Simulated assay, not measured.
Amino acid sequence: MLFLVVLLGIFAAATALDCTGEPDGIYEYTCFSYTRCIQGVAVEIRCNSTDIFDPNQQRCVTPTGGYWPCTNVVNCQNLDDNRYPDYNEGCKSYYTCHNGFFLGNSFCPDGLVFDFEKQLCNWPFNVPPPCGTA
């Protein structure tokens, strides 16, 4: 079941992240959205069009004074539409390219790395090098 809620100009939608038994908090985020577990339910919060997610403040903010918390921007002009491991972060995050545009970084839950072949976060022992040990 998918639901969409607009609250204070921010879109919220159900996600595939399983929060059963997990404490409330933010588990995944990109430059433009974040996924929060609330009472065992995962909810993706999408920032409005003028805001970005600031991991330090744990919320969407309007960039001011040249401050941009998403500093790891990738040039996607010559890349296929896909998700790519961020080797600079030890594959603990990945970025998405679509139609030549960088759509932001996403971060794997603790202990997982990005599995390029399966296009998801996975245990390192299931992922081939250079991201894993399989």
Rank of each mutant, 00 (worst) to 15 (best):
V74P: 01
V41I: 13
T133F: 02
F116W: 02
F114H: 08
G65A: 09
F101Q: 15
L79R: 13
N75L: 01
Y29V: 04
C37W: 09
S49T: 13
P128G: 07
F11W: 08
F125Q: 14
Q57T: 11
A12M: 14
D18V: 08
Y29K: 10
C19D: 11
F116S: 06
R46T: 15
A14I: 02
E117G: 08
R83I: 00
P124A: 07
T35Q: 15
R46M: 13
G90I: 06
C97K: 08
G25W: 10
F107V: 15
R46P: 01
V5D: 13
G100S: 08
A13G: 04
G40R: 05
D115H: 15
N105F: 03
T30K: 13
T35V: 15
F116C: 00
R46S: 14
Q119C: 01
T20P: 00
E22G: 04
H98Q: 12
C121A: 09
S106M: 12
G66I: 03
V5K: 13
D18G: 02
P63L: 06
Y95W: 09
D115P: 04
N122Q: 09
C91W: 03
L4H: 04
F11P: 00
L4V: 07
M1Q: 07
K118W: 04
N72R: 05
P124V: 11
V61G: 02
T133H: 01
K92Q: 14
A13L: 09
S106G: 15
N78I: 01
R46N: 13
S106Q: 04
E22Y: 11
A134T: 12
R83A: 11
Y84D: 03
L120A: 11
E117T: 11
Y34N: 03
L8K: 12
Q39T: 14
L8T: 10
G9S: 09
P130K: 02
V127C: 00
F125H: 13
R46E: 12
G40E: 10
N99R: 14
Q57F: 06
F102S: 10
A42L: 06
C37N: 05
F125G: 05
C97W: 07
D54G: 09
P55F: 09
I45T: 05
V43K: 06
D86I: 07
Q57S: 13
Q57M: 12
G111P: 02
V5R: 14
S93Y: 02
M1F: 11
G21T: 03
G25F: 08
F3S: 10
T62Q: 10
R36G: 06
D54S: 15
K118I: 04
C76V: 06
F3G: 04
N75T: 10
S33T: 03
D51Q: 15
C60I: 02
I38A: 15
V43M: 12
G104D: 03
